[in-house]
């Protein structure tokens, strides 16, 4: 599915207020929808597809069928167990069924917004940015798939003197960075694996573009926080951590490394999207293991946090 974005119209899921993990201070984080990667552990699976998605909560459903009759696209039907099945090729996210459902079992992830709407929304929290040295973070999904839109919002914010951060996985053409960088103060940059085969297994894409873009960011003098997602048994071997830290240590503008340990908060969303969760049996980290990894990362002499 190719994203067909209009720079005057953004597709976001939410503006998350009082974000405390997405850069310095208190922040509003704008979550953009659409992502070129398909990470096995993705905790925001509703942000992967570049179109609005219908979420369905089985536990709230009364099986009344109201949504089926409300849907003009004939995208909904009952499965053999009496639950609603969503034909995602037919569903265009119009939301008629959401309105009709008496039990609030349906919701839409993804709404189209204008530059002015997003700007206005995040400016509401200006006083909190001031007292905390915070600001606004563009995240996702992959915000750079909507670089034109991000650039316009970020420009508005720079005009207001507000700190801006871009949280990206970097798997986009450099031209997209060039579009937004004049208005960005800090880049939060994901490096998910050092080994490019491993990277492909875990995310569906190789990491060469990602590493190259990281180097270009450093050459442009862009301050960066590199974020290392840690998935037990998948990308947390000593060799893999060292490999990623090797890449990081060659980036002159990295101020901080944030370790993002695997968690399962997103698991419920898979069910609501009608998807299977790929890492069903993976345990979360013990504090001891996390401390070992943290010690290894710290040995590179860069400020390190857990969770950002």
């Amino acid at each position: 599915m190719l994203p067909m974005y209009n720079p005057a119209r953004g597709l976001i899921s939410t503006v998350q207020k009082y974000s405390t993990k997405d850069g310095p201070g208190i922040r509003d984080t704008v979550f953009f929808k659409g992502c070129p990667l398909g990470c096995l552990w993705c905790s925001n699976p509703e942000l992967i597809r570049p179109v609005p998605d219908l979420l369905y909560s089985r536990e709230k459903c009364a099986h009344c069928g109201t949504c089926l009759s409300a849907c003009l696209k004939e995208a909904l039907s009952f499965d053999e167990e009496g639950y609603v099945w969503v034909d995602r090729l037919k569903c265009d996210g119009c939301g008629e069924c959401v309105q009709a459902c008496p039990n609030s079992a349906l919701e839409i992830a993804g709404k189209f917004v204008t530059v002015e709407e997003v700007t206005k929304e995040v400016l509401k929290d200006r006083v909190f940015y001031q007292t905390s040295n915070g600001g606004v973070t563009f995240s996702g999904g992959e915000p750079l798939w909507q670089a034109g839109f991000v650039a316009q919002v970020a420009r508005n914010l720079k005009n207001e003197g507000i700190h801006t951060a871009l949280d990206t996985a970097g798997h986009v053409g450099w031209c997209r960075f060039e579009e937004v960088l004049p208005y960005i103060d800090l880049v939060l940059y994901d490096i998910k694996a050092a080994d490019h085969n491993l990277h492909r297994q875990l995310t569906g894409q190789e990491n060469d573009v990602i590493i190259m873009n990281a180097q270009l960011l450093a050459q442009h003098g862009m301050p960066m926080h590199v974020r290392l997602v840690l998935i037990p048994g998948l990308n947390d071997s000593d060799a893999e951590i060292k490999g990623r830290m090797q890449i990081v240590s060659e980036l002159a503008t990295v101020q901080q490394v944030d370790l993002l340990p695997y968690h399962r908060y997103g698991i419920g969303k898979y069910a609501r999207l009608g998807l299977d969760y790929p890492l069903l049996d993976l345990p979360e980290y013990s504090e001891e293991r996390l401390a070992e990894i943290e010690a290894l990362v710290r040995s590179y002499g860069i400020k390190t946090t857990i969770g950002g």
Binding site: Y18, G25, I26, V127, F128, Q130, T131, S132, G134, T305
Partner: peptide, 22 residues
């Protein structure tokens, strides 16, 4: 968990300051 650790405490204090400025 919102107030755990020094970093979060700082953010909480910033929230209190904003409350006053508001």
């Amino acid at each position: 968990n919102v107030l755990k650790g020094d970093d979060n405490l700082e953010k909480f204090i910033a929230l209190l300051e904003a409350n006053r400025l508001l």
